[in-house]
Amino acid sequence: MRCALVTGASRGIGRATAIALSERGDRVAVHYGADVAAAEQTLSLLQGEHHVLVGGDLSDPQTAQRIVRETEQGLGQIDVLVNNAGIAPGAATEHRVDETDYDTWQQRFTRMIEVDLTAPANLTYLVARSLIAREAPGVIVNVGSRGAFRGEPDAPAYGAAKAGLHAFGQSMALALAPHGIAVASVAPGFVDTQRQQEKLAGAAGDALRAQSPFGRVGTAEEVAAAIVYLTSPEAQWASGAILDLNGASHLRT
């Protein structure tokens, strides 16, 4: 039985991933930032026993250390890390260069980089060093974004952070392969999650669905299914990959 830490697992892609990993037989640490009630709901949906909750702001380096330590204490070890927690583009985080004052630009850009790039890098370091000390194989999957490739004019820090996360994952794939640790990324397009319901139901909904030739947006469960594959022992040869999950809404060349 393997043990997995899934960050940002209180809802959306993180919740779907935690559920899917538990259905595979993994023991899961459900991480949440602030919404403990939502995280407890995720915990109640998991299959099997001996799962744990861990909470805190991962952008704080000491908190990240505590979360890894509490996960190892609760599960016994960490074999799988899914770096899913992050700040998504939205009204509260947008910072268009032609519309945003400098103070807001500084605050929103810095915060997004801290949460979406630096935090997963620190967690990767902590979990990788634990695996190396145990001389154990493991796997890390980063949840990136289509926005890393197509650009995010309303939230450029988001596009920058996700592009950095993809590149960081490939660097770690090279660095950690000699230790038997695989690192890969997924790059979802627009996903139908709880926080996107209002947008999908509103005036922008049809345009969002029309971005894909399938005429719909993705689901959290589809992203989770890809993460389940990438975290399986059989997927070690996919280390270094960035898997597009966007319904052909953006094709890289």
Rank of each mutant, 00 (worst) to 15 (best):
A241F: 07
G90L: 05
R15F: 06
G25F: 01
G33T: 11
A204V: 09
I87Y: 09
I132L: 11
A182M: 03
E49R: 14
A20Q: 06
G74N: 07
A203G: 11
L5H: 00
L230N: 04
L174H: 13
G8M: 03
Q47W: 06
D154W: 13
R252L: 15
V139S: 12
A34I: 13
K162W: 14
L46V: 12
E72P: 02
R134M: 11
Q106P: 00
L165K: 03
L21K: 02
R11I: 02
Q62P: 07
N84V: 03
R216M: 13
G164E: 11
E222C: 03
A248V: 12
T42Q: 06
D101K: 00
Y125T: 14
G151C: 14
H166M: 08
Q47I: 09
G189P: 04
G240H: 10
G164M: 10
A133G: 14
L21P: 00
Y158I: 05
V68W: 03
G48Q: 08
L43C: 01
P213Y: 08
G48M: 10
T193W: 06
P233H: 10
V30G: 02
E40P: 02
T219I: 08
A88W: 02
G159R: 05
I13D: 01
R108S: 00
T63E: 15
V54H: 01
S249T: 08
A16Y: 09
R11G: 07
I140N: 01
D101N: 10
F168K: 04
G215Q: 05
Q106A: 04
L126E: 10
R27P: 02
W237M: 14
G164N: 10
V80Y: 00
E152M: 13
G144M: 13
D103H: 04
F149P: 08
P156E: 13
I78M: 09
G138C: 11
T118W: 07
R27I: 03
T118G: 02
N83A: 06
Q196G: 05
S212R: 04
P178E: 02
P233R: 08
T110V: 08
G76N: 05
D26Y: 04
G144C: 15
G56P: 10
D35W: 01
A38H: 02
A9S: 09
L230Q: 05
Q197P: 04
L5R: 01
N142Y: 11
K162T: 05
H51W: 08
L43V: 06
Q65R: 14
V30Y: 02
G138W: 13
G247A: 07
G147T: 05
V68D: 04
D103G: 07
E40R: 07
G48N: 11
Y32H: 03
T104H: 03
A92G: 00
V115E: 03
A29H: 00
